[in-house]
């Protein structure tokens, strides 16, 4: 019986998770090293990877800072009523429930060139939809809950006694945070950051809608893969996809490491 279940689980993992990864690794080499290199060093691929990197960096920095602050407020702040906190807490999860396409649509609806706000900004020379700011906004939206969901439980668990002790002894807010709070939430923040990077790296639906997928302008790595597949340019799609897949496997290892540090 035991053998059967273990075997069955291994088969499921191999078919569902193993086979696709192996297939994409083989596919990227289907036209040899030259094909792989060409797929990656095409100017549009370099530009798309650069866009993705830029978005990942901006989104991760912003959402980590706001995420940590927001979790601190949601758990500790005395100026928020308990009921208010509970309401805010349930709203945090909303981006998980929203289809990425809808997330993108929201930004086009609110800040697109046809809207009042979008037209005003455009007259001021700032384009949001179909440009980099909109893509960053969309990615910020979908990755918003990730850091908060990792940090909040830890803050609740450690309680506020030590922090109160520190401030009774006369420590400033900043000192209390860095010396007392930060060491205990550190690894959860790292875990949340890795999740955010992974999600920002792979965001597709929201970015596709918001960016308009314009080559050399608003194309990211994932939307380039999509366009390559639509154009039956599978070998090139594979090369970019392999880089993305390798990136996410690397992030997966980081996740495991952060998890073990957090529990250890």
């Amino acid at each position: 019986m035991r053998r059967l279940w273990i075997g069955l689980t291994c088969v499921v993992f191999a078919l569902l998770l193993g086979a696709p990864v192996v297939r994409i690794a083989i596919g990227a080499w289907s036209e040899g090293w030259e094909g792989f290199r060409h797929g990656l060093t095409r100017p549009e691929a370099l530009h798309a990877l650069g866009m993705t990197a830029l978005i990942v960096v901006v989104v991760t920095v912003v959402n980590t800072a706001f995420g940590v602050l927001f979790s601190l407020y949601l758990v500790r702040a005395a100026w928020l009523r308990e009921r208010m906190k509970r309401l805010l807490n349930s709203i945090v999860d909303l981006p998980f429930a929203v289809s990425p396409v809808i997330g993108g649509l929201m930004i086009v609806l609110l800040l697109g060139p046809e809207t009042a706000l979008g037209a005003m900004l455009e007259r001021g020379g700032i384009q949001i939809a179909y440009a980099l700011p909109g893509m960053i906004l969309a990615t910020l939206f979908v990755t918003f809950p990730l850091v908060i969901r990792e940090v909040m439980p830890v803050l609740q668990e450690i309680g506020s006694q030590q922090e109160e002790a520190a401030s009774t002894l006369g420590a400033y807010g900043w000192t209390t945070f860095w010396r007392v709070t930060w060491p205990s939430i550190r690894w959860s923040v790292v875990y949340g950051v890795v999740l955010t990077v992974a999600r920002a790296l792979g965001e597709f639906g929201a970015v596709l809608v918001v960016s308009g997928n314009i080559m050399f302008k608003t194309q990211t790595a994932t939307t380039l893969v999509y366009q390559d597949v639509e154009n039956f340019n599978l070998a090139s799609a594979n090369a970019v996809a392999l880089v993305l897949a390798a990136g996410s496997v690397g992030l997966l290892l980081l996740m495991e490491w952060a998890k073990s540090r957090r529990e250890g």
Partner: peptide, 24 residues
């Protein structure tokens, strides 16, 4: 190894997942 592989679909870009299934 299997236990860490579980999270792979969360880490993998969905467009890449789509391409993998398309090829397979």
């Amino acid at each position: 190894l299997l236990n860490s592989l579980v999270d792979l679909p969360f880490a993998l870009p969905t467009a890449v997942a789509g391409l993998m299934i398309l090829l397979l």
